[in-house]
Nucleic acid binder design. Structure first.
Length: 812
DNA sequence: ATAGGGTTAG
């Protein structure tokens, strides 16, 4: 076990720990016992110990791994030195599970669609698929469909297509039936092998490990399963269901069968280890084995290794791996690898919005004769969609269909999400309809995206009823689903009423009534679109109509609070573990409460989730800074372990809540602590204050601190820079395009203080001034008074604290 | 044939 405590990671949630292990796999599970079972019963609230000393940071004195740039591909040996480092364990950790926590759960749901990347299947196969979906209600009718098509279907490629597409639709039973049908009719062992590995992979993606194992064993017995593909598929199947010991066992057994693992096999087993919480040292052994056998690791290998590190909190090791990756030239050599690599790079560039590079890669792929597969297309669609390049999205989607690459759940999920985020609800609705027509089933991620779209538009109650629908459909919501809803609390009440344009209004009403007509037609159409689906389509119609700003807002707040409490209730019932995002969401919800009483109800929910986070939030809110500050610091230590946007979101939420309830000084302390810990990158210099990553409360508290800071500069007799600027952004970073809440808040703040700043000519989100003007203002007698912040509520004990830590003397 | 895409907290 080396020095790593089993639960020190920030990704402590192990969603699969709830899966019942198959009976035959419970033996020899020593390892799993230690790793998979969270020793803390989740729903107990631990006692707050306000005297608890702050956590010590991770030791920095551990020996540095010696991954250096001298390493070459031919001599890859430095990895033994990447020993796991001891890392601090905190009691907060179990709740502070990072974002990765739900990924795995969501991937367990229906159809991890993975379809044949080539278009080797014939159009007959597509026709057969339609028949199998729509007409085959039982085994018998499926048989007759298959018999009907038997002579026209072209070998294993057509059958593989059929299996995969059925798998994409969650129809594992039909898929197995087709597999049995196909295997009987196939003579060549090689082709039977293809069918078998495809079938194993499909079942693996659907989380049906036991069935996958059956197929595998039969294939072995019948003499067509002895391939590296079948083994790799089974390893991956075990891995994605969390049975990493089984995955390793299968991997080890390959030797007996004289099979040499290849890159994919190694990647699958390393990935399984990552998901299964295997300690880093053990994974490195496999990695070394890989290198010894001359299999070159690729980006996926490294990513999986990195996941193991981050899981174990082994940040040093992760950093070293990363630099090793760069040293190995993974980035540079990527094009000499294979399609996989292409897709990985492509999706990275697409996410970054670097479309020139994306186009280059596409061209490169075309010239090397590598076909774009569903993953390639999905990456392109997501990339263009996130940049709001909807024309490109349409073009790529058309190209995809022309290339006869079937859009899958992820394709539609991506598209529906980007269209909803862009406010193109009609398009989103049409895609949802197409998605249902294709016979695909929504999973938790798609539902969460839909729920989020409703929430972001203030339709919290509709979101909650969709939550109920998905539960009824047998799809288990995850923490993300709940976080979306919690974070939406109060949004509708504070949402601005857009300035109405009469004509536009009428247009939208027309559009909305058209939508309703389409809806009615759909009902007649019949079976394909079910109850929940109709509801979703209705919601999109509602959203399209709500764009006209017709929302009735009376009583909303009251209803919403009841609604949100019922959501918490459901979360408890389903035993959904909260994470740091949940806490941020609750704090944000508090900021939207009009009364202290409402906020208290929400804080009470926070207390039930995590007494310690509650202790800090509540303590600061009540002005008991001195008592909770130590506790707060240890909380911030934990938050610092998250990725930067998660961390800053938490600081933003906490600060906003404090600011909202008049604890401005407390808010400022939190913000300065965040700055000290570099939660927001490069917040300030003497000439510039960059607020674009901050919430409005955090930004305002920061403006005060910054101005006090340059006031000190002035009073020390130094000159200010000629030009001073405050950047607020103008909504570019906002998920709501052009929102600019921070900009408005700062504008109001500066005006209110009489600070001589004005909006820069070419940039609405930038306030500027000159050094001399600001200096003169800062010298005015009344300025200091408006700059220093106070709390509405203070504990008498705190006056002493205030005096010592007068702002100018704070370590900034 | 086996791996790799999508959702929340700005």
């Amino acid at each position: 076990m080396a020095s790593t405590p089993p639960h020190c990671s920030i990704t402590a949630t192990k969603p699969y720990q709830n899966h019942p292990y198959p009976q035959n796999q419970l033996k020899n599970n020593h390892h799993r016992q230690t790793h998979h079972q969270n020793p803390q019963p989740h729903w107990t609230t631990h006692k707050v110990s306000l005297t608890k000393p702050p956590l010590s940071p991770s030791p920095r004195n551990a020996p540095k791994p010696a991954a250096t740039s001298t390493t070459t591909n031919q001599n890859p040996k430095p990895f033994h030195s990447l020993a796991p480092l001891p890392s601090s364990k905190s009691e907060l950790a179990p709740n502070f599970s990072g974002r990765r926590s739900t990924r795995f759960v969501s991937k367990m749901h229906f159809g991890r669609p993975k379809i044949n990347m080539s278009t080797r299947h014939t159009s007959v196969a597509e026709e057969a698929l339609q028949h199998a979906i729509h007409y085959a209600k039982d085994d018998k009718s499926l048989d007759s469909v298959l018999l009907n098509f038997e002579t026209k279907l072209c070998g294993s490629d057509d059958y593989t297509f059929l299996l995969r597409e059925l798998g994409n639709r969650g129809e594992w039973s039909k898929a197995i039936h087709c597999f049995d049908f196909a295997i009987k009719r196939e003579r060549k062992k090689n082709e039977q092998g293809k069918l078998a590995s495809a079938m194993i992979s499909i079942l693996g993606r659907l989380g049906k490990v036991d069935l996958a194992k059956n197929i595998f064993e039969t294939a072995l017995n019948e003499g067509y399963g002895n391939t590296v593909y079948a083994f790799s598929a089974l390893i991956s199947a075990y891995g994605r269901s969390g049975y990493c010991d089984e995955a390793i066992r299968v991997f080890d057994s390959m030797k007996k069968f004289n099979l040499k693992p290849n890159l994919v096999t190694y990647n699958a087993v390393i990935d399984a280890c990552g998901k299964g919480g295997v300690e880093f040292k053990r994974v490195l052994e496999i990695f070394d084995d890989m290198l010894k056998n001359g299999v070159q690791p690729d980006r996926i290998t490294f990513n999986s290794l990195l996941a193991v590190c981050s899981r174990g909190g082994l940040w040093e090791a992760a950093r070293n791996l990363f630099s090793e990756m760069v040293n190995r030239g993974i980035d540079q050599d990527i094009f000499t690898y294979n399609t996989v690599s292409y897709n990985t790079v492509l999706s990275i560039y697409a996410k970054l919005g670097r479309f020139e590079e994306v186009m280059d890669i596409c061209k490169e792929m075309e010239s090397s004769g590598i076909r774009k597969d569903v993953v390639t297309f999905n990456a392109l669609l997501g990339g263009y969609g996130k940049q709001w390049k909807y024309d490109e999205v349409r073009r790529v989607f058309a190209e995809m269909k022309a290339a006869r690459v079937s859009p899958n759940l992820l394709t539609y999920s991506t598209l529906i999400d980007v269209y909803s985020k862009g406010g193109l609800y009609k398009e989103a609705m049409e895609l949802f309809r197409e998605f249902k027509q294709a016979g695909l089933k929504a999973d938790v991620v798609l539902y969460s995206a839909l729920i989020d779209a409703l929430c972001k538009n203030g339709l919290v109650e509709s979101a909650v009823s969709l939550l109920d629908e998905m539960t009824k459909e047998g799809i288990r919501p995850n923490v993300v689903t709940y976080n979306c809803i919690i974070d939406a609390f109060g949004r509708s009440a504070i949402a601005e009423c857009p300035v109405e344009d009469g004509d536009r209004d009428i247009e939208l009403k027309k559009e909305s009534s058209n939508l309703n007509k389409v809806l009615t037609m759909d009902d007649k159409e019949g079976q394909l679109v079910g109850r929940a689906d109709n509801q979703i389509i209705q919601f999109f119609g509602q959203l399209a109509a709500e764009k006209a700003g017709q929302a009735k807002k009376e009583n909303r707040c009251r209803q919403e609070i009841l609604c949100i409490l019922s959501v918490f209730q459901k979360m408890h019932e389903l035993e959904i573990k909260p994470n740091v995002v949940t806490f941020s969401a609750i704090l944000n919800a508090c900021s939207r409460c009009n009364s202290f009483e409402d906020a208290s109800m929400l804080l009470e929910e926070l207390r039930l989730f995590d007494n310690q986070v509650y202790g800090v939030a509540h303590g600061l809110l009540m002005g008991c800074r001195e008592n909770v500050w130590v506790q707060a610091l240890s909380l911030f230590d934990e938050v610092k372990q998250m990725d930067s946007s998660t961390a800053s979101a938490f600081y933003n939420a906490l600060t906003d809540m404090l600011w909202h309830f008049g604890q401005k000084r407390g808010a400022q302390l939190v913000v300065l602590e965040g700055k000290r810990r570099q939660v927001w990158e490069n917040v300030w210099s003497d000439s510039c204050l960059d607020l674009h990553l901050m919430s409005s409360g955090a930004a305002r508290a920061m403006v005060h601190a910054w101005l006090l800071n340059i006031r000190a500069v002035v009073f020390e007799g130094h000159e200010l820079p000629k030009l001073l600027s405050i950047l607020t952004g103008w909504g570019k970073h906002s998920k709501v395009v052009g929102d600019g809440a921070v900009r408005r808040a700062i504008e109001g703040l500066l005006t209110g203080m009489g600070a001589p700043f004005w909006v820069a000519r070419c940039n609405l989100g930038r306030f500027i001034s000159t050094g001399p003007m600001v200096a003169a203002w800062l010298r005015e007698s009344g300025t200091m008074k408006v700059l220093v912040l106070h709390d509405d509520r203070t504990d008498s004990e705190n006056s002493r604290f205030d005096k010592i830590s007068d702002l100018q003397t704070l370590p900034l």
